[in-house]
C-alpha cells in the first residue's frame, strides 16, 4: 500500500489587515483523503486562513502548496507570474462559501458547467454529463434548469457543492457551509458533505457544528488569535484537549448547543 501524498500544505502563513495581525504563522498539511475541521472563536482567523489558500486574500508571508503548485507571496501582492500559478491552484481546489455565491444570471446547470467550460475548456457534452451526475449526487437533478433565486438556501448550497466538485478538485474548502441556513435545512447539506467524506475526498471545513466535526473529521484544528492552539484527532481534541482555551471554547460551545 502506498502512503497518501500531500494534497495541500501551508507553512508559516501570516496575514494582517492594517495593524490587525489576523494570522501569525500557521502550518497545516492535508494528505489525500484527510478531512480537517477548523474550529475556533469568532474572529480567530478561520475564514482568513481558508481564503488565503486560493489567494482570495493574499498572505503577507508563508507558503501555500496545492498538489504540484506552490506559492510564496511577499508583501501582500502577487506578481503576474504568481497570479498565473494562483489560477492554476484555484483550478485544483473547490471552494464553498458561507453565502453560496451562486451566479444569479445562470441556471443551476449553467452554474455547474461554467468553470469546466470557460476555465478548463472541456467539451460541452462531457461537462454537461458530469454536471448532471453531480446534481444527481447532491439530490437536485430535477432542479437543473431552475434559477438560483428560486431555490431554498439548502438547495443553493448543494448546488454550490456540485459546482465545487465539477472542478475535479484535489481538495475542497468549506467556509461555514451551514451557518447561513435555517436550522431545518442544515441537515441536507451536512448529509452531502458526510457522503463526500465517506468517498475519501480531501476537505478542509470551517464549522461551528461540533457534533458533525467530531463525526467526519480525521483531524480537528483549533485556532486561537491567529495561531493553531490545538490539533489532533477528534477523540483527542474533543475528548481530552491539552489547551485550557480549547477546553473553555468547547465547553462553551457544547453548553450552548445543549
Amino acid at each position: 500500500m502506498t502512503l497518501p501524498s500531500t494534497a495541500l500544505s501551508i507553512a508559516g502563513l501570516r496575514k494582517s489587515f492594517g495593524s490587525n495581525e489576523v494570522l501569525r504563522g500557521i502550518d497545516l498539511v492535508a494528505k489525500d483523503g484527510d478531512v480537517i475541521s477548523l474550529i475556533g472563536a469568532s474572529g480567530s482567523g478561520k475564514s482568513t486562513l481558508l481564503r488565503c489558500i486560493p489567494m482570495l486574500e493574499i498572505p503577507d508571508a508563508g507558503t501555500v502548496s496545492v498538489g504540484e503548485d506552490s506559492l510564496s507571496p511577499t508583501g501582500g501582492r502577487l506578481s503576474r507570474a504568481q497570479l498565473a500559478v494562483a489560477r492554476q491552484m484555484r483550478g485544483h481546489l473547490g471552494f464553498v462559501f458561507q453565502n453560496f455565491n451562486l451566479w444569479p444570471h445562470r441556471t443551476v446547470l449553467q452554474n455547474v458547467i461554467e468553470a469546466p467550460l470557460f476555465v478548463q475548456n472541456r467539451p460541452r457534452a462531457e461537462a454537461v454529463d458530469e454536471a448532471t451526475a453531480l446534481l444527481e449526487k447532491v439530490g437536485l437533478s430535477e432542479k437543473r434548469d431552475a434559477w438560483p433565486a428560486h431555490l431554498s438556501g439548502g438547495q443553493q448550497q448543494r448546488v454550490a457543492i456540485a459546482r465545487a466538485l465539477a472542478q475535479r478538485p484535489r481538495a475542497i474548502l468549506f467556509d461555514e457551509p451551514t451557518s447561513a441556513l435555517d436550522p431545518e435545512l442544515v441537515g441536507e447539506v451536512l448529509k452531502v458533505i458526510r457522503a463526500l467524506a465517506a468517498e475519501g475526498r480531501t476537505m478542509l471545513i470551517v464549522t461551528h457544528e461540533m457534533g458533525f466535526a467530531r463525526e467526519v473529521s480525521s483531524q480537528v484544528v483549533f485556532l486561537h488569535q491567529g495561531l493553531i492552539e490545538e490539533a489532533g484527532t477528534p477523540g483527542q481534541v474533543f475528548g481530552n484537549p491539552a489547551s485550557e482555551r480549547c477546553r473553555a471554547f468547547l465547553s462553551g460551545h457544547f453548553d450552548r448547543n445543549r
Binding site: 484555484r90 455565491n101 451562486l102 451566479w103 444569479p104 468553470a115
Partner: peptide
C-alpha cells in the same frame, strides 16, 4: 454585482477578463 459572485468566479480559476466577460 454581488461581491460573492465575483469571488466565486475568481476562486474557480477564471482570468480577470473571463470574470468580466462571463460574470
Amino acid at each position: 454585482v454581488p461581491r460573492g459572485a465575483v469571488e466565486a468566479a475568481r476562486v474557480s480559476g477564471m482570468t480577470r477578463l473571463t470574470v468580466m466577460r462571463r460574470i
